[in-house]
Design a protein around this nucleic acid. Structure first.
Lengths: 343, 343
DNA sequence: GTTTGGCAATCTCTTATTTAGAGTGCTAAT
DNA sequence: ATTAGCACTCTAAATAAGAGATTGCCAAAC
């Protein structure tokens, strides 16, 4: 359904209604809109307009004789057409930047810290997902024997990120054997993205004449080494913020949400998929393909470390202050990208 | 206060009361104890005994005309003297072992999985804390230049655990310089525990004649490299289990608990401290020095990986099935230790 | 043709009131 | 020492009553 021929008045009423509802969480009546927003119209007139909006499926009544609340469709229209992003003031910007910069002990801790900031200043659930290593361009592989029978594989990608994997090997592997393998790997793989390498690994290494057992080991563990999806780490902070929101008054919903968060996988997949594109992505209510959070919205965006990207954002009830959140998430991603390129 | 001169009857009544209360979460009245537990005494007699127990501070009434519930002291006595550990059956044992073994992609994922098991089969909040690296005996240090200006430090300790730290260095460090530093570090530090090394680092390296700038860098980053407290990772799973318990009916308590969990640090410190000793440690209610969870109990124990130890256990309301939990936590720790030494 | 005031109707939310039930503590009898 | 009996207390659930909000619609006003 297209809403292009909505009158100005209808748009204005919808906008005010949503703004007010986001603030108060109470169904909004015609009187409130007429008085609080000084539209120069009587409640009765507003009522008529509201009836129209309801017929269009943009707002609804929880029950007769309550005011109206926005539907998902209403929020969608609001977000797409009526929303004016609320810029951050300097205090807020500084707070974000300082908090992200405060703790530079590695990317993981920065991300954890970032989810905390997001949670804190948005009053929603802040989430961060670690970079999709797959996208990284391999710059180097090292094979280091540590203790007996252990081999440490170091996969370094552009922009200084590195992953280490500890592998089990037969204990009688010769140093020279390793050296040679290392050489071949670097020769043939460097410069490509891990994801690409993983897909084409067999061909790339097919005609080598290095140690067959090492080769086999490497091929067998390729998923682990090169990063098969599933190792993106999810950080979330601010669950307590959601608890105090009226939409989570229902214990069952709360429980479901926590289960989802603790399960991680499902959420990571969802978010990762939604954010293949650049810029802020907003997903509202039923647009989310996960049952447990269909009364929630997602505001997410990408951050970058080198040419690898990851995702940050917030989850909260559909009744969330989108205009503010967009600015916050955007700025936080920007700051995060900067901080990460620093280190 | 000592409770050594409690009569058999008093002990028995206390025991039954606690057992029943743990099951039902309802204050237990004299009738229930007299009838359900076939003590051969009338409710009136039980009432008298209960009055004694109340005077001793072992049980209390939520209000007149409710039954009694145990106090923290009561639980303590119960745990120390009256509890018969409930052995696991084979099904349970298998489930634990299989689930831990199912996912061997590195210690972190095993620990995460373990917290999940604990949560699931105890119906409490399962927690795991990663090994205290400090206790590890250094077997080797590698310094590997990765990209320009990045140095990867690999710290390997006994039992095949290794930690990697990515460091910033000046980009014109020579290979030979590194090699030499590496040699010296290995020579002087290997064989000691990281914690010990950290404390004595300055003396140990004082009279070396290796690259001064590398030395300085290393000394400056020693905390990061050798493991200053603070990097023990906390995994927890099963928060939703707690939500459905009546003791968390109060939203505020729930919120506080979540905040605590998300804060991590405080909980890690508490648990780590409680578990310096071997064996199961049970901490009940007010014995916990954290306000937010004073109506909770902790059942924790150590696991080992090589000679390094970490902690696992459960958190739940003081009204928890201690006798079962002890067995579960104990067996899980044992299985975990085995699994970890495998890999 | 819009817009508005008026008003009955509807529904929720809050607060009281009542009632039923459980458990205690005490006393007197066993 | 144990127990039956009983008045008393307090909670929890059910019911009732009342207050408040908002709507939809109609007829009047602009």
């Amino acid at each position: 359904m297209s809403f292009e021929n909505l009158t100005d008045r209808e748009l204005k009423v919808l906008q005010n209604l949503i703004i007010h509802y986001i603030r108060t969480a109470d169904p909004v009546g015609s009187r409130v809109i007429a008085n609080k927003f000084r539209m120069g119209l009587s409640p009765a007139t507003i009522r008529n307009t509201m009836q129209d909006l309801e017929e269009l499926g943009l707002i609804k009544q929880p029950h007769t004789s309550a005011g109206r609340i926005p539907t998902d469709t209403g929020y969608r229209l609001f977000v797409d057409m009526l929303l004016k992003p609320e810029p951050l003031n300097d205090t807020e910007k500084n707070k974000i930047r300082n908090m992200i910069g405060a703790n530079k002990k590695g990317i993981d801790s920065v991300l954890s810290q970032t989810s905390k900031i997001l949670g804190e200043i948005t009053n929603q659930l802040g989430i961060t997902i670690s970079p999709r290593f797959e996208e990284g361009i391999l710059t180097r592989i090292d094979l280091i024997p540590v203790s007996d029978g252990k081999l440490l594989v170091i996969v370094a990608v552009k922009s200084g990120l590195a992953r280490t994997i500890l592998m089990e090997v037969e204990s009688d592997i010769e140093f020279e054997e390793l050296r040679q393998m290392e050489l071949i790997l670097n020769e043939r793989l460097v410069g490509n993205s891990l994801g690409h390498i993983r897909k084409t690994l067999n061909e790339r290494l097919s005609d080598t004449q290095c140690s067959p057992r090492l080769l086999k080991l490497f091929l067998d563990s390729s998923d682990e080494i090169l990063g098969e999806q599933g190792d993106e780490k999810l950080h979330y902070t601010g669950a307590d913020k959601l608890f105090s929101q009226p939409e989570f008054a229902d214990r069952v919903k709360l429980t479901e949400l926590i289960k989802l968060l603790e399960g991680r996988r499902e959420l990571v997949d969802l978010v990762a998929q939604k954010t293949m594109t650049e810029g802020i992505v907003i997903t509202i209510g039923g647009e989310i393909p996960i049952n447990q959070i269909q009364e929630c919205s997602l505001v997410i965006t990408q951050y970058k470390i080198g040419n690898i990207s990851g995702t940050i954002g917030v989850i909260g009830p559909t009744r969330m202050p989108y205009s503010k959140l967009i600015s916050i998430v955007e700025y936080t991603a920007k700051s995060l990208t900067e901080t990460l390129s620093d280190l």
